[in-house]
Computed example of a mutant assay.
Amino acid sequence: MSETVALTPAQAWAELSAGNGRFVSGSVEHPSQGVDRRAEVSNEQHPFAVLFGCSDSRVAAEIIFDRGLGDMFVVRTAGQVVDTTVIGSIEYGLEVLGAPLVVVLGHDSCGAVAAARAALVTGEMPTGMIRAVVDRVIPSIVARVPTGAGSNGEAFDLEVPEPGELGRQHLRGTMRMLVNYSHALAKAVEEGRCAIVGAEYKLADGRIDVVEVIGDIG
């Protein structure tokens, strides 16, 4: 898929899913990584997917999806936490570069998510600007559970999920945040021009599991 081709969201996801299948089985093809491809994309880019993922060194997007130069517009932060620059970058990939798919990629055993859970359980926050990462993870991994106190049950307790569910809950929260904050992204999904796939990467076997989808990928 070296040539520039306009893909649907479903076709874009099929390309990534097939690439991950090759990576898991060890039959990688390393597409779009040759000298010709380097020259082809030297003056312009037409990625078929925007990937927003965690900065973890073990989750290198082009490798785990067996893709190459110009295929994916990648945005990464620790714990895939959202800020205005992240949203602007995703909108650039969508509106300017024309990518029909946004993938939000989390992974198991995420250090940022574990740090956020530890902060909630122990009350101890990390020092320095690492705290800024944890502060942005906490809202998406905390559930408010009614205690039944008061006539309308307006009192709440905080429930911290178990470690296995934390990453997936954070992933869903990140997807909702992107749609709520980005009018351009929400409109593109509504019009069928784009879909958002929330997926979790398994560090041990390299598999990508779909957690949630907003839009149509077939």
Rank of each mutant, 00 (worst) to 15 (best):
A119K: 06
V35T: 03
D71S: 03
P126W: 08
T77P: 12
S17L: 11
L120C: 03
I87M: 12
V59N: 01
A60M: 09
R76S: 02
H46Q: 04
N152A: 15
S25W: 10
V197F: 14
C54S: 04
S42R: 12
T85K: 05
R172T: 08
D108L: 07
L97P: 05
R136H: 02
A78E: 08
T8V: 08
Y181E: 13
V160G: 02
V5R: 14
P163H: 10
F48C: 02
P9V: 09
V59A: 04
D36K: 09
A204C: 02
V86I: 11
A184R: 03
H107N: 00
T122R: 13
V5S: 01
E212C: 07
G70Q: 07
A115L: 11
V179R: 15
T127G: 08
L203W: 14
T127W: 05
L97V: 04
N43C: 03
T174G: 01
V86C: 11
S89P: 07
E162K: 02
Q80F: 15
E200C: 08
V103I: 11
P146T: 09
L94T: 03
Y181S: 13
E191L: 15
S140K: 06
R193W: 10
C54P: 05
V134R: 07
D135P: 02
V102G: 01
G93L: 13
V35L: 15
P146V: 13
F23D: 05
N43M: 12
R193G: 01
A132R: 13
G153S: 12
E165G: 03
R172D: 01
E212Y: 08
R37G: 00
T122C: 10
R136T: 00
F65Q: 00
V210G: 00
A132L: 09
E212F: 04
D71R: 06
L203I: 15
H107L: 11
A195W: 11
L120Y: 04
D157K: 12
R67T: 08
V213H: 08
A195H: 10
V24A: 09
A116G: 15
D71Y: 04
L69G: 00
I64S: 00
G93V: 07
R131A: 15
V82F: 03
A184F: 12
G218D: 13
V50D: 05
M125S: 01
V197K: 06
R136S: 08
V179I: 15
T85D: 15
E162I: 14
G88V: 08
V81P: 01
Q45W: 13
G128E: 14
A204Q: 12
G70F: 14
P47S: 13
F23R: 06
G148E: 11
L94M: 15
E40D: 10
D71G: 06
I63W: 01
Q45I: 06
T8H: 13
Q45M: 04
P161V: 04
G111F: 10
G93F: 09
A132H: 06
P139D: 00
V96P: 00
G128Q: 08
Q11R: 11
E212W: 09
A14H: 06
V96M: 02
L69M: 11
E95N: 06
D205G: 02
V133F: 09
L158W: 02
L16E: 08
K187G: 00
S55R: 04
H107S: 01
A6N: 14
D66Y: 10
D56I: 04
A61Q: 08
M175A: 05
P139W: 02
G153K: 15
I130Y: 07
G150R: 12
V134I: 04
I141E: 02
S27H: 13
